[in-house]
């Protein structure tokens, strides 16, 4: 039965997931090409020194991609549920409502984690060909907030989508934008290191938010 819900989520999002994967693959390839290019044009020595002394970012093309894909995925999953209040059909399925929601959210988070993990698994060892582990690690820490913000953007977008009242949705959007902006403060690579555990913990707890919206939906709040 749960596979069936996943099947439904896949029908809604399949095209987007494939498109997002293609874009990620493209951006990964582009990142490699552009890193290779700056190495060739400026020489490895200059680039290493620029990274060490001036904190030259190596993966900045990726910055907005995780959050963008996460928002689109959440919209693709939950806008159709809210159109004509189809969520009523979904919640009417003979399964506990909480588990239905967990399955739907789990699908989205699993897709995002998969895309993000594959990105890192390809990108970081790739950078390791040209750069010392310290520099790879620096790039990892610099990009980690972008990926965590993707997961958070997913749960927040879900929370906003499932909220039945438009006025409340706008309030939630404003608070969400403020919260997500915290992940994009310009600081040195690694400046988030001590903040990341907090952000990650909050992201996990924020998975509760969509359930609040669903229970409001169930009460028929208008």
């Amino acid at each position: 039965m749960y596979q069936s819900i996943i099947y439904k989520e896949w029908i809604k999002t399949g095209k987007l997931v494939i498109l997002a994967s293609v874009i990620f693959v493209g951006v990964i390839m582009y990142s490699f090409i552009s890193v290779k290019q700056i190495l060739r044009l400026n020489g490895s020595v200059n680039i290493w020194e620029a990274v060490i002394m001036k904190d030259l970012p190596l993966l900045s093309t990726l910055k907005w991609l995780p959050v963008l894909v996460a928002i689109l995925l959440a919209l693709a999953q939950f806008v159709p549920e809210m159109q004509n209040k189809r969520l009523k059909l979904t919640l009417h399925l003979p399964l506990p409502e909480t588990l239905i929601m967990i399955t739907m959210l789990g699908f989205g988070i699993a897709v995002l984690l998969f895309i993000y993990a594959v990105t890192y698994v390809v990108l970081l060892p790739g950078l390791g060909i040209w750069f010392a582990p310290e520099i790879v690690q620096l790039s990892f820490y610099a990009s980690l907030p972008w990926f965590i913000s993707g997961l958070l953007a997913y749960t927040l977008t879900t929370w906003i989508c499932l909220e039945p009242v438009w006025r409340q949705r706008i309030i939630n959007i404003a608070v969400s934008i403020a919260c997500l902006s915290l992940f994009f403060v310009g600081t040195r690579s690694g400046g988030y290191n001590s903040f990341i555990p907090y952000l990650f913990g909050f992201t996990i707890l924020s998975m509760l938010f969509p359930f609040y919206s669903v229970s409001r939906f169930k009460e028929g709040v208008q």
Binding site: K8, I11, K12, P80, K85, R86, L89
Partner: peptide, 12 residues
């Protein structure tokens, strides 16, 4: 359950 307007998951 049949919802008003024969609502179904029309993306299927």
């Amino acid at each position: 359950l049949l919802l008003e307007g024969h609502i179904q998951h029309t993306y299927f």
